[in-house]
Design a protein around this nucleic acid. Structure first.
Lengths: 187, 187
DNA sequence: GCATTAACGTGATATAGGTCACAAATTATT
DNA sequence: AATAATTTGTGACCTATATCACGTTAATGC
């Protein structure tokens, strides 16, 4: 399972065996069951998680009690409540498991120490964060310029593997539409 | 005007005079007139800009010809087409000036050289990118969970200074609503 | 200072998508 | 295997927001 993390980093910077062991020593391993929460609204956000296997979702509950999915995270994805984690605030999001999952997780302190000690890791995280920004900007433009059907088609195209692992209800919530509307689209 | 950039960086990492001069040497200065484009769809995106004064907007034109504002950028803000800039692709966005503007701009090569030479600048850019991510995630949740009026109120609260400098039509476009709907909200 | 263009407000009408309600089908749990 | 819980489909109806079409006012450029 270390290989998953190593490969992910290796796509951006090259690490010797020793360097990777050093990187790894900053992380912990966690195993979670379906339905288990790893981050909860109103609570501190001590870690960012790198998913090794399984599937998680982060979601926001608005003032009328409605859930909105911000992100799904499967193997190779990073997930946390960014606002809580980076600003050391309590979570406004919840994160739980859609499937049994395993993650490598790291504290902000350890991440910063790691970056200070091994500059290429800072480069790695910057690249990841940049890619995240691009994806988020595209999602905003998609929400603003596409209708429900176009957004659903785009989701299928972007994440073909997720379609079969996630209930339509949750995909609808991710796309910002009601489950009924999504149901009527899919033929 | 150098002071604007220095202060922006100084909020995150401390720089000696020499270090700041070194940082500065990687940037160029640009002056632009109202209505002038600094980035155009289908063209390369050689720079990311740090705004010293004036006001710019980035926008996407969808397939039906409708404009959607992705970002406004005033003093102290960074702006570019991220996808084009970081992935060395042609722009999918346009960026032009709402007011005469001045920016410090830098190429990706220079930015990477700067980060390699002065590690705290990499930390700086990572912090900025992280803050950007948080803002984008909040915007997505806002688009998904709030109605037009709530989004407009939130905009006023977040950017009180912009309200008087930007036509309502453009604010509507940023919020993802029609100008008529916004007009009917504002009493 | 005048002419052009952009911005704004507002009525009338259309529509995408939301909400509610119920039943069927599928998946989990013991 | 039986029971409970979740997911999905679909009809009927509702509503927020879009669109179209004006006229008015305010900026802007020459």
């Amino acid at each position: 399972m270390e290989a998953v993390l190593r490969q992910q980093i290796g796509k951006i910077v090259s690490l010797s065996d020793d360097e990777f062991q050093f990187v790894l020593s900053h992380f912990l391993v966690g195993n979670y069951k379906k339905h288990q929460y790893i981050i909860q609204q109103e609570n501190p956000v001590p870690y960012v998680h790198f998913v090794v296997k399984g599937l998680l979702k982060s979601f926001y509950i608005d003032k009328s009690g409605k859930k909105h999915i911000l992100q799904f995270a499967m193997k190779d994805w990073w997930i946390t409540d960014n606002q809580g984690f980076y600003n050391k605030q309590n979570a406004t999001l919840n994160i739980d498991c859609l499937e049994d999952a395993q993650t490598f997780y790291i504290t902000l302190e350890n991440r910063e120490k790691l970056c200070a000690e091994l500059q290429k890791m800072e480069f790695f995280f910057l690249q990841k964060m940049t890619a995240g920004n691009i994806a988020l900007q595209n999602r905003i433009l998609s929400l603003m310029s596409k209708n429900s059907e176009e957004r659903y088609m785009q989701f299928i195209q972007l994440y073909p593997d997720l379609i079969h692992r996630i209930p339509k209800t949750l995909i609808a919530s991710y796309l910002g539409i009601s489950r009924e509307t999504l149901s009527r689209l899919s033929h």
